[in-house]
């Protein structure tokens, strides 16, 4: 009987078995949220790299192509995307450092976990804002 159906992965393993509880069953916690945000920022950066590629290609093509990019980056939407992009980069970077600490076997204690998760979130926001303040100061004011 079983041979006749040639059970693959789907039929043999996933049929009417009790499933382990998934995300919606748990109370949202900071560590869990930061883990999810790490994946979301990673996915966003995956497509966000197109912005950088546009930048480089526009500069390589010539003044007209670059003018189009520059116009977009000067709009509030362009600046917002750029700001979000730097935040995602920094958040993903700090989250990655957290993972590297865990990879080496440190930071698994209850307080350490919470502290690392909070540091990732607060650090990413503070660093991003500081970076933009410094950036605007170098550029000589808001423009």
């Amino acid at each position: 009987m079983a041979e006749a159906n040639t059970p693959g992965l789907k039929t043999s393993r996933l049929k009417d078995r009790p499933l382990s509880p998934h995300l919606q069953i748990y109370k949202p916690m900071l560590t869990m949220t930061m883990s999810i945000v790490h994946r979301i920022t990673g996915g966003a950066l995956y497509f966000g790299v197109l912005l950088l590629v546009w930048w480089l290609i526009a500069a390589a093509i010539g003044p007209n192509a670059y003018a189009a990019l520059q116009w977009f980056m000067e709009t509030w939407l362009g600046r917002l995307i750029l700001f979000g992009y730097t935040w995602a980069l920094i958040h993903h970077m700090l989250g990655g450092m957290r993972h590297l600490i865990w990879d080496m076997g440190y930071g698994f204690g209850a307080n350490e976990r919470e502290w690392l998760a909070a540091a990732t979130l607060v650090g990413s926001i503070v660093f991003t804002i500081l970076l933009w303040i410094v950036g605007y100061l170098i550029m000589g004011g808001i423009r």
């Binding site: 500069a59 003018a67 520059q70 980069l89 920094i90 990655g96 450092m97 970076l131 170098i138 423009r143």
Partner: peptide, 28 residues
Amino acid sequence: TAVANVPLTIAAIVIVMSLLGRNHAAVV
């Protein structure tokens, strides 16, 4: 690549921010 990306990302952000508000010739 994650470890390599830490200094490279910081450098790239600084570089890209230095391009803001500059014209094509300066960016090139």
